[in-house]
Amino acid sequence: MRMFNCLALGAGLLATPLAVPAHAEDAKVAAIVKGLDNPFFQTMQKGIEEQAKADGVGVTVQAAANMGDATGQADKLTAMALQDYDCYLVNPISVSNLVQALVPVAQKKKPIVNIDSTIDADQAKAAGFAVSTYIGTDNVAAGALAGEEMLKLVPKGSKVALIAGIVGDVGSNARTKGFKQAVEGKLEVVVMVSADWDREKALTAATDILAAHPDLAGFFAANDIMALGVERAVQTSGKDVKVIGLDGIVDALKSVAAGELTATVAQYPYVVGAMGVEACKLAAMGKELPANVPAPVLLINKDNAEASLKNFPRPGGDYPDPLREMLK
């Protein structure tokens, strides 16, 4: 809540002035997400559609043809911008590909709710608009959560290794940064390698690291796919080394429940989509939106893995949602 309060303060400065508020009941939301060839965005779409149904708002979800279809996504948004929607929910492929397509939306003074991937604020400003709100996972906080769990699992001063994604990837950098900050001065990070989000590469890298550091106590992998690869390497070595992943995909939850993977930090594309719809509903009611809303990240270990699996793609337990509070 403390975090939310200071965010709400910032929101006052950035919140978009809204045109005559429509009735929330007949609000129509246009959503455009990234490629539906990825389960992450399919789950997000499900969250958008189910929340819209629950909230009684109409929604149309469109998506890019694939993750490289930056112009196609812009074309579809351009088409939707011409139609009479009350709110636009956008998850852009890149920080700039939807900027031009959003100009007519901003001219009509319709709220723009940015979810998951950010739109570059400077380019938006140059084009003459600002998004009404941003809802997404804080990757640094998610990495820190993994770091805190690692601190509980291994003795102080233990050696840990980090498996990062593609070199230079913003998400991977933020996640490893969060982990490092959380364990700084308490654990020794002996090595960090890049395994390109690939299970096989992570397995090979972990095998090598285990050979080089026989006294290693734990691994943190920047996503679950790599964590599962690392876990296989640990199993083969027969050692008791803790492995923590990040994302909360089904395979990882199953592995945690089976006692293989130690833990994972789950983020919820379903909730990100659902919160986006809540933001649109709030905007339609004429409420001012906070500029930045963090989506929940939850730590999943053996205790709550079963519950998480049962509720997937929803979180296993209750989670903080400032937008839901505002709707009450």
Binding site: G68, D69, A70, T71, V95
Partner: peptide
């Protein structure tokens, strides 16, 4: 059109 140069191929 998209304001940035991206090393991704748009197969479509």
């Amino acid at each position: 059109r998209i304001g940035s140069a991206e090393p991704q191929i748009n197969t479509s």
